[in-house]
Design a protein around this nucleic acid. Sequence first.
DNA 1: TATAATTATTAGGCATCGCTAACAATTATA
DNA 2: TATAATTGTTAGCGATGCCTAATAATTATA
Lengths: 166, 166
Amino acid sequence: MMKQGMQRAQTPSMEDYLEAIANLSGERKVVRVNQIGQTLQVTMPSVTSALKKLSDEGLVQHEKYGYVELTPKGEEIAKETIRRHKILSQFFTQALGVDQKTAEEDACKIEHIISLASLERLVKFLEFMEACPLGEANFPNRYGYFLEHGKLPKECLQKGSGKRSN
Amino acid sequence: MMKQGMQRAQTPSMEDYLEAIANLSGERKVVRVNQIGQTLQVTMPSVTSALKKLSDEGLVQHEKYGYVELTPKGEEIAKETIRRHKILSQFFTQALGVDQKTAEEDACKIEHIISLASLERLVKFLEFMEACPLGEANFPNRYGYFLEHGKLPKECLQKGSGKRSN
DNA sequence: TATAATTATTAGGCATCGCTAACAATTATA
DNA sequence: TATAATTGTTAGCGATGCCTAATAATTATA
C-alpha cells in the first residue's frame, strides 16, 4: 500500500517555483524564466538560480536560454503542492468565509508547512460539510448566519444549549 | 477605535524567541539563554545573536551574562503570538481532531504567517462550534462520528441531502 | 541582415538564521 | 578560595534566497 501525498521539495521557495511552472504549463504552450518571475514576483536572476537548483535535483529540465519543463518527479511535487493549495484555499473561502484574495495568500504560505495529518483532516472536514447539508439547517448555512449577524440562528437556540457561559 | 492584533515581529524566528521567553517567564523566576535554546532547539550562540537583534529593536532587555526580560513592546508581540498559537492549536485539536503533538507543531509554524482575517474567522468558527451544540446532534459530534466511522451519522441522511454525487 | 528590444545569465552583494570552535565569565563545589 | 562545571559570548562559516549591475544570447523589426 503506497502512502500518498508525501512529495515535498526541499524548501517552500522551491515548491513555489514548481507550482508556478506547473500552473503556467497549463496556461501556455511553453514556460519561460520571464513568466515564472512575474508569477512569483521575483527577478529573473532569482529564477535562473532557482532553476539551477531544481535542475540539479532532477525536478525541472532547463537548458540555457531555453524553455522550462518539469520532470515527472517535479510534476509530482507540483501536483501535490497544488493539491494542498486547493484544499486550504477551499477551506478558507468555503468553510470560513474568508475573502478570495486573503484565502489565496494564506494558502500560498501554509501549503508549504502544514502537516499531512492536519491537511487530511481539512479534507475530511470539507467532505463532511458537503455531505451533510440537512436542508437549510446545515452547518455552513448556520455558520454563515452566525458570521453575518453575530448571533446564533434560531435552530441553535434550543434546549441543551446552555452548557457554556460565554 | 484601536485596531487590535497587529503586533508582529519582523520574522517568524524572532516571534519564536519572544514567545519562548514569555512562556518561560511564566514558568520560572528568571529566563536564561540556556533555557531559550532548549525550548527552541537551537544552540546558545543562536540565542545570543537573536537576543542582540531583539534588544536592538527594543523588544527584550538583556545584558551580557544576565537574565532575559521582555520589554512592554516585546511582551505585546509575544502575547499576540501566543494568542495566535492557541487559536490554531485549539482549532486543530478541537475542531479537526488532529492529535495534540501535530496540532502544536502546525500551530507553531502557521501562527507566524496566517493573516489576521483568517485568524479571526477561526475564532468565530470556534465560538460558533461552542455556542451551537444542539444536544448530541451538534456539529462537532456529527463530524466526530464522520471521522470515526467514515460515514455520515443518521441525522445527516435525510431528504435534501442528495444533491451531490461524491 | 543589421540594429533594437527583449530575454536570460553571470557576478557579486546582502540579510536571515542556523551551526561549530574557541574563549570568557559566572557559579558551584571540593 | 582554588578548581571544575556550567553558562554565555565572539568569531567565523555555510545555506537559503533575494537583489542590482553588467554582460550575453535571442528574437523582432526596420
